[in-house]
Design a binder for these strands. Structure first.
Lengths: 205, 205
DNA sequence: AAGTACTTGTGTCTAATTGCACAAAATCTT
DNA sequence: AAGATTTTGTGCAATTAGACACAAGTACTT
């Protein structure tokens, strides 16, 4: 075990291992090896062993890893052994798709509030959710203690909404707006911008 | 200039620079510096200078970079100085959101085909697009010469669709399905999985 | 025209990350 | 029960990435 600071790059790979292990578990598998897991996720076996060993000795020589046990440990490390409430800001097409997305609940997240600044949308329902007025965002998030938000507003609005989220105590933002956000170092941001991702591949074509 | 192999990690940052520069240009700015650009994207000025200098000497001492010129150069490097045709597979909520998304055309991409394997959806229209039968996918993609695909199908279908895409000559896949894809090294994959991105932040909460 | 301020591109150093290899432990085979 | 096989965790080496510092060129100021 190692109590030192774990590099971001290792933390970034853990969710990928977690997803693959969950899939194995769903398929009824009981144990796996760094070799096998590596083939599934496209990462070298040595890398996987080293990553996992940062947090403890979870494997057994000759046998490998118990999938159920490693799943538990990874969920604990990533703090997704319970469900996080998430606020969604921006009820456009992307916001709608995310509200309806079935892939959050069994992976640690649940959307519990949806906001939009368009007064005509406020009060409308998506899958049972009432869209709330973005003017009430700060107050509602602060009082509910929500720490995670997903941002699906147009680029010009994104920074000012992010500022309000930070002010309201949000510590993690999943940003779908095509713009780099400026936030305090204590707040984490992850970016999803399909054009950026596509442009990372065209260089190689 | 440097003709050697450019590291992936540098290529990965270029689209972020490109997006920020485009924004500056839209705001009427003519020049910028590594310092200023760095503040916008949250990357050190030295890093930005070193990244850009891999491809040539695009700046001028004392002045910085011409935004229009650097934009041109980055687009050329990333090969997004023309529009790439893209195929979308999976006409669910996410597929719909992507078809309607306005952020592709001025950044180098255009969805030109949409496929689904649900026979009831085939023939339906999204924003003017007729949804095509996924059985025809290989043939249609091969004959059209499309090199880029976006995958928004359920996880269990993703690998087999990816295999067909590779077979049809696709060289870049933007994968929204929550599963690691197994493809030849000559094919690039980028992953978008909101749960993964969220799990990369919860560790720090 | 001289001085000041700004900014690039890059050489050097430091830090971070990955790859390799193997002892040790567990299991399987005969 | 002995030998063969599997597989982990980790020390060390190699590679890669990032930070720092500065000469040199450009523009601005007085």
């Amino acid at each position: 075990m190692n109590a030192e600071k774990i590099p971001d790059i290792i933390i970034g790979r853990l969710p990928v291992y977690l997803r693959a292990l969950q899939r194995m578990a769903d398929n009824g598998l009981k144990t796996t090896s760094s070799q096998e897991l590596g083939e599934h996720v496209g990462i070298s076996a040595a890398q996987i062993r080293k990553d996992i060993s940062q947090f403890g000795e979870f494997g057994k020589q000759g046998t490998g890893y118990s999938i159920a046990y490693l799943l538990d440990k990874l969920k604990e490390i990533l703090k997704v052994n319970h469900i996080w409430d998430v606020a969604l800001i921006g009820a456009g097409d992307m916001g709608h798709a995310l509200v309806r997305y079935q892939g959050f609940t069994n992976r640690g997240f649940k959307i519990v509030m949806v906001f939009d600044n368009n007064k005509e949308k406020v009060g409308q329902k998506i899958d049972g959710f009432s869209i709330e007025d973005a003017d009430k965002l700060a107050e509602r998030i602060k009082s509910s203690g929500i720490k995670i938000a997903m941002l699906t507003v147009p680029a010009p609005a994104a920074q000012s909404v992010a500022d309000k989220l930070v002010q309201a105590g949000v510590k993690a933002i999943l940003n779908y707006a095509p713009i780099s956000l400026n936030v305090p170092k204590s707040v984490k941001v992850q970016y999803i911008d399909p054009s950026i991702h596509l442009q990372r591949m065209t260089y190689y074509l």
